[in-house]
Design a protein around this nucleic acid. Structure first.
Lengths: 341, 341
DNA sequence: ATAATTTCTTTACGCGCGATAATTTATTAG
DNA sequence: CTAATAAATTATCGCGCGTAAAGAAATTAT
């Protein structure tokens, strides 16, 4: 490694013995130059430290190598896992992903979309806030940037949506709960942030009716993204109300279930499918922490990997110029039987 | 809002009736122009949509408004919380934070530092991987960019370090455990990624000796960042080994404790400080989920807010030109008494 | 070998803005 | 009202690179 500092592409071109426009072509696509010149450039790259100035590159190219990743709440391990997974795939494809979190706030989501737009990204992968989203703002963004939505759908927005097959999710676990014990009641937030929650409620009702059982829904108060606390406090209310007509609770998602189990503990109720337990609790999502609740949580596993993979693949089809109609890709979940139900 | 699209600062200057250099000055610092011209510019800003091209700005300014935030593992809610907190503070100060995660991998950490360098950030806030970090690479980065380290310290690197006062943390909870029941043994990973873990072990030994008790340390195998699973499997080994000379376990951190409690559950051992419980378990960090374990976890609360605040404040002192010697700022934790110990 | 084709070089311009110097205009002090 | 000061204007350059056109050189095909 030479001590000579290369200041720009001009200098690098001269030490590599290739003209600047050709070097520029090389950095744009190494395969676009003759193998012999490519070798020369890469030899120089071994000797001298040089990388094109990213700001100059991005200013002049119409399309950057940036990919925006936006999740509604990064402190939720479900979304941290999505972000990590998607990020890695983008890196592998030679792009520069940037992760943003709306922190559950519409204004923040809008600000991020606005800032992201200024970065002229090649594409974006968005998990919108859901109910809190400014639909017009998200649509406006999608009109400018190739975008794939995931997790939380906004109809006909962006190139495609990749998410869960909520009816399948809920039907699967409702059927399991019904055949292994008492039919479940449904525990949810009254005004859920995420549209998946509404679909799951719907799917619960349908599944119960199909199976010939009377559904019972508990919608508890609570705003924001502190689901565990909402689940805990709501759990206390429901459990002490005496209104539960069953010993089995299906929670709208795992984080609510985690809080609900805490409530059970605090009320001295034993949770589990084992004999002698007072109550069975199940969740939906397979949250990373669900394996470690006491008892471990029975739930439906969302396949982060498949959803991420498909979302990224769809985006890059578009980035690489393919045209295709709007898609909705829903993926099935798998039952994860643990001890809580 | 006019329909005329403003393409650059030149055009915006002309529609606002102000010369381009003055407009440029305004965007650099709105207070640097006369109030009357500022008003004119802001009036135009109401009518026309224009924002300076961020790439052109960053190319020409020696210093950008970017701030890099790097954490070792974003899927760990402790770091998600840090990242969120720091991010928000930077936004409030008018900067553009960008969050990165090393995902526990040295090469990733190095790549991120490398990429970050190319973004000419005004500063960076790094929580290094710890044992896995390439110290030379981190130091090299710190030589180029004003950097404050947090959470995990690398001696004499960067402008300052902000983190926990591990001796105080551990002493506090050891004292509590000793006066409220049997003195604790210490449960940790054999080769912890994070240097805090080593200090906590040390501090445990000292605290126990000071109090006149015989320490006992269990170092369990396990690599990586899946602490809950390591805690669970290690917990099984320790609990079934018959080597524990006490009914109280202090875990090196909350995530290990969460896994340990799961192991207790799986072995049918009741956890808690209540009478009749088989074992007491305590953690350290006040992980966001610790409130929801069964029983809720007694732990030492790390003050994310204060650490973040201090780290950001220190960085911006440097960004704004102040010179000061290398600092180490350690913050005390508070005992959070819940039911597990 | 010659022609056809591909690739490279040279030259030149443009992107959008920061920065500077010299000049003009507006504001404030006396 | 004039001088002193502050602020805005005009003009001009530079940043580092993308890109286009025209011609030279190297490669491939015939």
């Amino acid at each position: 490694m030479s001590q000579v500092k290369i200041r720009n592409m001009e200098e690098f071109a001269s030490v590599s013995g290739i003209s600047r426009p050709t070097v520029s072509k090389y950095f744009n696509d190494p395969d676009s130059v003759r193998p012999s010149t490519r070798a020369k450039i890469e030899a120089a790259l071994e000797t001298y430290e040089y990388r094109p100035n990213i700001f100059a590159v991005n200013q002049n190219r119409k399309q950057t190598k940036t990919v925006g990743i936006l999740v509604p709440y990064l402190a939720d391990p479900v979304f941290a896992e999505f972000a990590r997974n998607i990020e890695q795939r983008c890196v592998e494809l030679g792009y520069r992903p940037t992760i943003f979190s709306s922190h559950g706030v519409q204004q923040t989501e809008n600000d991020i979309l606005d800032n992201l737009l200024a970065l002229k990204p090649a594409g974006a992968l968005l998990a919108p806030l859901g109910r809190e989203s400014d639909v017009a703002a998200v649509r406006a963004f999608c009109d400018e940037v190739p975008t794939v939505l995931f997790d939380s759908n906004i109809a006909d927005t962006g190139l495609a949506f990749c998410g869960m097959d909520n009816p399948q999710f809920t039907r699967l676990i409702v059927e399991y709960l019904c055949r292994s014990g008492q039919p479940p009641c449904f525990f949810e937030m009254k005004t859920p942030a995420n549209p998946n929650a509404r679909k799951r409620r719907q799917s619960y009702l349908e599944a119960m009716r199909t199976l010939g059982f009377e559904p019972q829904v508990f919608s508890v108060a609570g705003e924001g993204w502190h689901f565990e606390e909402i689940g805990r406090q709501g759990g206390h209310k429901v459990l002490t109300s005496g209104e539960m007509r069953t010993n089995t609770v299906l929670c709208s998602n795992d984080r609510l279930a985690i809080g609900f189990i805490t409530a059970c503990y605090e009320l001295g109720m034993s949770v589990g499918r084992a004999e002698g337990c007072a109550i069975r609790v199940a969740g939906q999502d397979d949250h990373p922490f669900s394996r470690y609740t006491c008892p471990p949580l029975t739930t439906i596993a969302q396949d982060y990997d498949t959803v991420s993979k498909h979302a990224v693949a769809t985006l890059f089809r578009a980035i690489e110029g393919e045209e295709f109609p709007y898609e909705v890709n829903l993926f099935e979940g798998k039952l994860v039987m643990r001890d809580s139900a």
